[in-house]
Design a protein around this nucleic acid. Structure first.
Lengths: 213, 213, 213, 213
DNA sequence: AATGAATGAGGGTTCATTCAT
DNA sequence: AATGAATGAACCCTCATTCAT
């Protein structure tokens, strides 16, 4: 009986937490960190201001958790998709698709990640990238496998991974910055084409750029 | 006489403005927008707080102008370099190099651009990209020329341009976010290789991704 | 049957009340009024926060009752001791001893009385002294008796009483303020000597101060 | 010129500080620490809230400084009076008079000292008594001199000093607590009589209490 | 022109109190 | 009767901006 009650309480607690996190995501993404007030988050969640503080100890923590939460979901989403495939090249393709689709569907998060970098980079640098890691590391392994199998050119995987992550982030940031006026996922074929095959036509010229590792 | 005096005054005014802008750049990049106080900017510039307000109407304007200023310098730098070359592919190569070199040498600006996106995206969206435009448009023309000359694959230039800008921005952001622990310019060869020739080795597979426009 | 049940209930109620009062005494004396939270009192009492409010209507009332409670115990203690003696001078001696011993053994209360004066003096002035009264009045009567019997100099009893109470309170306050580093009861002989016989040796000089009533 | 200007500024600064300290003294003594708002202090001083914070870094600091300030004035006042006399017994008499007169004229301070003890004793214990020290030490020296000269009974000076300070504090506290309904200075003759000559008439009984040191 | 003292709007946070379970 | 989740009033403090000198 007691145990059951306790469980119920915990479930309620987590439900509330999630509700507030959701509300916070909406408000933060709409107004940005600085102009968001706890009052607004509370009323967005249909709660009193004090209640928010029962679940999160500060505005900053709440903001950071919205971000972390999104990160986790991003990683999970990508992971789930990747595991459906065995071929490394296909996996890269899928990861790119999943990544861009995720932000298309969770566009609020793009702005929040950007803010987090801008506002809290100095303090959360390490923590921030620890969370990226799951994702980055996943990609790194795929790249390694692909190189090993001779499917990819023999390049430095770290470097390559860095480039892909940068490209994807950059696409999302730009999309956000331009007001999400176009479909992010529509860009996927072109991204794959460029990333996989490059843009230069002339073979002689291509050779020239193949030297890099 | 009068006129001369007036000119002198104007020169002095602009010199002061530039000094404050410099000071602001240093302080904003160190503490971020929110934690920067006008007091600190003033004392960094060796001036009184009130004086800052003689030259700029608000903290926000000052911040935005630091950004705009950087943007202008970025555009000019890239432009100057590009004009030294006639070959479009070389121009692209040069633009990439100049872009990354610029941020390596003006690393403060990367953080400021990031903040600007995070804090003021909502309000400055248009103005912000108007300034990117100079730069973006420049690239667009080069891509067009290259496609026309048959040096590049026949792809949608808008889309392609978008991808390159995203890649470069993404690289700079990530470099910043990771604490500028490595050399940004060292990545150039690899960036060129990927962007120009792609990463996939197997010809059959490459074909598959060439379909996109 | 019913009555018995009711009595039991009342006993339980009073037991709870006393428990909470105890807990409150501990917490208030440790953290002071302002920094004490009802939550802490509740958990010190092993109860829920809401329960505290079933027994006391506010934090302030609770605090004041802790004080009043202590007062009552002080008065009772002194009274019990005094009644063992008939001689007024002895009674004064005993009262002084009992007073100081009480605070030595209930040192928490000294701090609480001090706070009460500081925080609530303005509002509780009358109520506060009504409770002192029992004690003060007791002393007054003894002084009167002693003067009447010619054991004490013929001085204004009100005034004298005031002085003794002040002296004792002052001793306790100072002892508290200095961190209770010494034994309060060790001071008793000296207090008696001063209060009963004064400190001036020279008889001529003594005469000079005897004029006051 | 510059120097003169600087001096003027400093004078202005100190004048403002003193004004705020005064205003704070009035408000704190009227409402107590907890119920005093910085806003009220500011408006009492005829200033804006922010200005108070230019001169004092927190409400607490301000409160503590009001106290310390009073302490210093008390010590100075007593010192000045004492130095007018050479005879130790007279000096004690004068100190008692000056002490009680000071609080009669600065009755606000009594409440503030009380609060300080109640609210901040835990944190300021040492600092608090360091400030009493000037005063206490002064008295100690007088007592020593008086004992040495054979004017006082040969008792432990530390202990005696403690008793006098306690008596005086106690008188002030009680006077405060009872609403300052009577004149504190009117009590002086009686205080001197008791402290100097004691209250017991009967010589045989007096002997009994003379044993203590 | 340069200054920095004065200002007060604004919001994060705490916690006594309430009330539905 | 006991509980503790929900509440919102209350207040400290910061700092961009103004303005008199």
């Amino acid at each position: 009986m007691r145990t059951k009650n306790k469980e119920k309480m915990e479930q309620l607690f987590e439900k509330r937490q999630a509700e507030i996190l959701d509300a916070a995501g909406i408000v933060f993404s709409k107004y940005g960190f600085a102009k968001t007030t706890i009052d607004r988050i509370a009323s967005q969640a249909g709660l009193g201001k004090g209640t928010v503080y029962q679940y999160f100890k500060s505005k900053k923590e709440l903001f950071l958790l919205v971000g972390r939460n999104g990160m986790d979901r991003l990683k999970d989403t990508v992971l789930v998709e990747i595991e459906k495939e065995a071929d490394p090249i296909k996996q890269i393709e899928i990861a790119i698709k999943a990544y861009l689709l995720f932000f298309q569907e969770n566009s609020k998060l793009a702005g929040i990640f950007m803010q987090e970098q801008g506002e809290f980079r100095r303090e959360t640098q390490k923590r921030y990238f620890e969370h990226y890691y799951g994702h980055i590391d996943m990609m790194r392994k795929i790249f390694k496998k692909a190189v090993k199998k001779g499917l990819l050119k023999d390049v430095d995987v770290e470097n390559l991974n860095n480039i892909l992550i940068s490209l994807l982030n950059g696409l999302v940031y730009m999309w956000q910055a331009e007001g999400m006026k176009y479909s992010l996922t529509d860009r996927i074929p072109m991204v794959l084409k460029v990333f996989f095959t490059g843009i230069v036509k002339d073979e002689k010229r291509r050779q020239k750029y193949e030297k890099a590792k």
